[in-house]
Amino acid sequence: MNSSLEILQKWYASVCDGDWEHSYGIRIETTDNPGWILVVDLVRTSLHGRTCDREYQSVDGFWMSAKSDGIEFVAACDPCSLERVIDYFIEFSAPESA
């Protein structure tokens, strides 16, 4: 079974067409609250136009927020949940979630 990172890498490779990657891409950054943010450009991909709005917070400190306006998928999370956010993007990008 592929890891979340491997699946994300394969998705990125699949949308790179010699042009897309010059204007669009994927960004993973840290935030000062502290946490992570994942931003994925959806323009000119099969996910263009797909939307979502999800927030989750648990008593043990796990939190995540993910939104897509159909142009950009943006997810943020606590410092220990980056893999969960990548997993949610993978779930979001699955054909059956369309």
Rank of each mutant, 00 (worst) to 15 (best):
A94T: 10
D78E: 11
G25I: 15
F62L: 06
L42F: 04
I28L: 13
F92G: 09
R50P: 06
E72R: 15
W63R: 09
N2Y: 04
S97M: 13
A13I: 05
E6Q: 11
T51F: 05
V59G: 11
T45M: 08
C52Q: 03
Y12M: 10
G35F: 00
R27C: 12
Y56Q: 05
P95G: 05
S14K: 10
V43N: 11
M1A: 11
N33L: 04
T51N: 06
P79W: 08
V74H: 00
M64N: 04
D69R: 02
S81I: 05
T51G: 06
A98D: 11
R54D: 10
G18I: 12
I37Q: 13
K67A: 15
H22T: 14
N33M: 06
S14M: 08
G49F: 07
P95K: 08
T45F: 07
S14F: 07
V15M: 08
A98Y: 13
E91M: 09
E29A: 14
I90Y: 09
F92I: 07
C52D: 09
F89K: 05
V43D: 10
I28S: 02
T30P: 04
S23Y: 14
D69T: 12
A76D: 00
G61Q: 10
I37P: 01
Y12G: 00
G61T: 07
V59N: 10
A13Y: 12
L38Q: 01
G61V: 04
A98N: 11
W20L: 13
Y12F: 10
H22D: 14
V43P: 02
G49I: 12
N33C: 04
E96Y: 09
Y88D: 14
F73P: 01
F73S: 01
E6A: 10
I90K: 09
P79T: 14
I7C: 07
F62S: 06
L5Q: 05
E6L: 05
V39A: 09
P34C: 00
F92A: 09
V39G: 02
Y24R: 13
A75Y: 03
D60A: 11
H48I: 07
P34W: 03
S81G: 05
R27M: 12
W63L: 03
A13R: 15
D69M: 06
A13W: 10
L8R: 00
T45E: 07
D78V: 00
I7G: 00
G18S: 10
S65P: 00
L82T: 03
E83F: 03
